[in-house]
């Protein structure tokens, strides 16, 4: 049973235009493989994986959403319950970058205000076809208070980091007591062994120094 023990469960959603590689980003992360001819996602698909942050076992539950407009109203139901969101665009298709504002507005409106959003410029392996520069992506992220990273679901470049860095930020917020972790609606669940030990927030005492300076 110890295989299934976790310190925290954190819910993620992956959003962004259709065809930017959301499902591939999930598959690369959970199965460590790339599937070039992936079918269109219908509605929402689920995936899960463990990561470790400051010695804590964190189980990421990830909902990969359909990017098409027709599913937009369905996927909104997932925003509020997620603590992390990966907002993905395709560096080879400018329109997917231009739609970011719409996505962001949707996310801000329907999600928890504490949700950590990671902006991801995907398909960094296709340098020759690039139309959105790294600087542009970075500037957009800075302007809207998002984390930023360019990834390649194909070569796996930065994929791991995108998920883990998001988890690190959420874990910082947990430690600072930003989330009400007793309410699962925030997209965070505390492992039973952490819940039972002491009444207060499950703060990692040793890891607490790391965020100074």
């Amino acid at each position: 049973m110890s295989n299934f023990a976790y310190d925290y469960i954190i819910k993620y959603i992956i959003i962004g235009d259709t065809g930017v590689g959301k499902s591939c980003l999930l598959l690369q992360f959970t199965d460590k493989r790339f599937q070039p001819a992936h079918d269109l996602t219908i509605g929402v698909e689920f995936g899960a994986r463990f990561v470790e942050v400051e010695g804590k076992k964190i189980k990421l539950q990830i909902w990969d959403t359909a990017g098409q407009e027709s599913f937009r109203s369905i996927t909104r139901s997932y925003y509020r319950g997620a603590a992390g969101a990966l907002l993905v665009y395709d560096i080879t298709r400018r329109e997917t970058f231009e739609h970011l504002l719409i996505w962001l507005e949707d996310a801000r409106q329907h999600s928890n205000s504490d949700t950590t959003i990671m902006l991801i410029g995907n398909k960094s392996d296709l340098e020759s076809k690039r139309v959105v520069s790294y600087a542009e992506g970075e500037a957009f992220a800075r302007q809207h208070g998002l984390f930023f990273m360019e990834t390649s679901a194909k070569t796996a470049e930065n994929v791991e980091d995108a998920y883990v860095d998001t988890a690190k930020d959420i874990y910082e917020k947990i430690k600072q007591g930003v989330f009400d972790v007793t309410n699962e609606g925030t997209g965070i669940k505390v492992g039973s062994h952490l819940q039972s030990g002491g009444g207060s927030l499950p703060i990692n005492v040793n890891g607490g120094n790391n965020n100074c300076c």
């Binding site: 819910k11 219908i42 509605g43 929402v44 689920f46 909902w63 369905i74 139901s77 997932y78 319950g81």
Partner: peptide, 15 residues
């Protein structure tokens, strides 16, 4: 309705 099923599950239905 698979979409509703998924959202219900997302809302921690199983637990």
């Amino acid at each position: 309705n698979a979409d509703i099923q998924k959202i219900v599950a997302f809302e921690n239905a199983f637990e």
